[in-house]
């Protein structure tokens, strides 16, 4: 089983009559349980690649299979369901709902899966315990540190038992100590639960902790080091 399988993937944007090729033909396979980092300078196309892998966007051409399913055959609704079941997201700026408790933030993906409220809360509690936040269930994001907020976001990414966690600069807004803690958490998840982790970063030290580094430059994969 492979988490992602991309062949000749391109993505172009049309901005005020100018066409920008963000990705210019990417071939990439990421297997189950891998821990990979996509690394490149800003403007290299790494964010575009992550959006495509995360099914938040559709390729201009090429084939992308997520969990063996060709995403071009899916309509918006099926794509949303695929995101919900297969992929967990961790963002640089956490993206938690501001006036909602940690528990409800974590339970949110299960709402869209139609999981009953009691079970949602149980699973969200377990996920928060797994990231070491059992004592913060009813706290709101504003009552937590950045590191804690990112751990809530990781719990949210995990609560639906995804195949892959896509982390977009997960340490970008954190100090070294908290960043280190978050990376440790991702490593543990990968090792203990076998969840594939795909990390997008521009920091070589962060990328160095992954077992595979995919270097992207000018919309192409420049180097792929395992």
């Amino acid at each position: 089983m492979t988490a992602f399988e991309a062949a000749a993937l391109t993505r172009s944007y049309h901005l005020e009559g100018v066409t920008v090729d963000a990705l210019r033909g990417v071939d990439l396979t990421i297997g189950d349980g891998e821990f990979a980092a996509i690394i490149g300078p800003s403007g290299s196309g790494k964010s575009t690649l992550m959006h495509l892998l995360g099914c938040l966007d559709r390729p201009t051409s090429g084939v992308l299979k997520v969990g063996g399913v060709d995403v071009s055959t899916l309509d918006d609704t099926r794509l949303a369901e695929l995101r919900n079941r297969m992929i967990g997201f961790v963002f640089q700026s956490f993206h938690l709902l501001g006036r909602t408790s940690a528990l409800d933030n974590v339970a949110l993906p299960l709402v869209y899966r139609g999981v009953p409220r009691a079970e949602r809360r149980r699973r969200a509690r377990e996920a928060l315990e797994a990231v070491g936040l059992a004592h913060r269930l009813d706290h709101r994001p504003s009552q937590m540190s950045g590191g804690e907020q990112q751990r809530v976001a990781i719990a949210r990414a995990l609560v639906g038992d995804p195949q892959v966690v896509l982390a977009d600069e997960p340490t970008g807004n954190l100090d070294t100590r908290n960043g280190d803690e978050v990376m440790g958490l991702l490593e543990r998840l990968n090792a203990d639960q076998g969840v594939a982790i795909v990390l997008v970063t521009h920091e070589p030290e962060v990328a160095g902790r992954a077992r595979r580094q995919i270097h992207v430059r000018d919309g192409l994969i420049e180097r792929d080091v395992a």
Partner: peptide
């Protein structure tokens, strides 16, 4: 807008 984007990323469909 950001909240809507997040909800969609987490699996909210258009009709949700």
């Amino acid at each position: 807008t950001k909240e809507i984007g997040l909800r969609k990323a987490l699996g909210a469909r258009q009709r949700d």
